[in-house]
Write a protein that binds this DNA or RNA. Structure first.
Lengths: 218, 218
DNA sequence: ATGACCATCTTGACAGTGCTAAGTTACACT
DNA sequence: AGTGTAACTTAGCACTGTCAAGATGGTCAT
């Protein structure tokens, strides 16, 4: 089949020549396809097909394939940040509990959106400066993670916290590395049983972040 | 240029019809190309071209493109394991220092072979059972990491280590997650300055793993 | 030594991909 | 009403992974 315009049953009939909202639809389709396959198998043509437009249409909204992937990744960072904030606000108790809640949200997000998460951290952008929105969203998300730990540091949770800024930075970086690494290992299937429930993942994340809590509070 | 057989200057002249050692050469070429580009831009045809054989030749040694990538990843796990063991054996002092040395080797390997490292953890294998060698090498590498921490646990380093097996597992997983996450963030450029030397990376890894040491020894 | 076998390598071909060039449509503004 | 332009279209190029079918030449039984 060499005709790209064979409309799949999922694509709605289009009434006008101009689509009107194609950019958003392309991202939605991409997001949906990422639930089933990984980013490397995500083709512009398949997305266009699914959206019911021609194969060249996406180029009027994204510079190239990488541009669309970067936009998807940026959306992912936004969603991740919101999930983190939501869980952090719901957490009661010490700043450390809040920090742990953020870590759990992080790991859960990766568990529930593995392909999307991997795309966000694929790091395979030809040039970072080409995707300012992605950088903005990523930085904002890291900022949320960091400021949570900063608050932890500012509070009196750490005993004898007079080691200076270097250690504080190392702790923040360690915390981030921990949850990121756990998330990666988890979605690679290197950890836990083959089929895990979200509750099991949450328990695992809780256990592992407790180790970090020992390091911080010790 | 639609001719796949245009031999690049790097490919040696072949005297006999049969290559004799093509599988190894294909892997070497793949390894070399991975130093410059990421795995998503690694094509079977380019590798074949570089090796001086036709485009279909690789299919006599690998089931498909994924098979070759899996073999490259397996080699990577072997190299990583050896690097870990080398540094661990060179480390003197407490088991904790040995553990830290392994973590540093892990991070340094990722820093020096970012594309290869990402391929190893890309997790984008259509079916895990299709690549038994990759699984073997990966498991052996994780085993080396885990047993190092196991030795740490067995020694008297931890004070009051009577919390049971669950905690020990959480600690091992935490240690692994920490170095893996740090490695990933590092090669994504999310950490440190744009251009870092190996010595700077080693210092960073040393600092961050010290946080873990606190958690373990605390 | 001869012949058969077969792993290895070859060319040819097909469908899929990203992307560009050059047309077409229709909205929006003067 | 007329014109400009953003959003869409088809046509086509170079590249990719993969298979089928033929060419080669080493190996091993006779």
């Amino acid at each position: 089949m060499s005709d790209d315009r064979t409309r799949p049953p999922t694509a709605p009939e289009r009434t006008s020549y101009h689509h009107g909202d194609l950019r958003r639809v392309l991202l939605e389709v991409g997001h949906r396809l990422l639930e089933e396959t990984d980013a490397s198998h995500l083709s512009l043509r398949a997305i266009a097909r699914e959206a019911g437009v021609s194969r060249a249409a996406p180029y009027h909204h994204f510079a190239d394939r990488e541009g669309l992937l970067a936009a998807l990744a940026a959306d992912g960072f936004r969603d991740l940040r919101h999930a983190m904030i939501r869980r952090a606000d719901a957490a009661v108790g010490s700043p450390l509990a809040r920090m742990q809640a953020i870590g759990i949200a992080y790991v859960l997000f990766a568990f529930e959106n593995p392909h999307h998460y991997r795309l966000m951290f694929s790091g395979e952008w030809s040039d970072r400066d080409r995707h300012p929105e992605l950088n903005r969203e990523a930085d904002a998300t890291y900022g949320a993670l960091g400021s949570a730990l900063g608050g932890l540091e500012a509070s009196g949770t750490r005993k004898g916290g007079r080691q200076g800024k270097g250690l504080a930075q190392a702790l923040a970086l360690g915390a981030w590395s921990l949850v990121h690494g756990l998330a990666m290992l988890l979605i690679d299937g290197r950890v836990g049983e083959a089929e895990m429930t979200a509750a099991e993942v949450e328990g695992l994340a809780r256990e592992v972040t407790r180790v970090l809590g020992r390091g911080l509070a010790g």
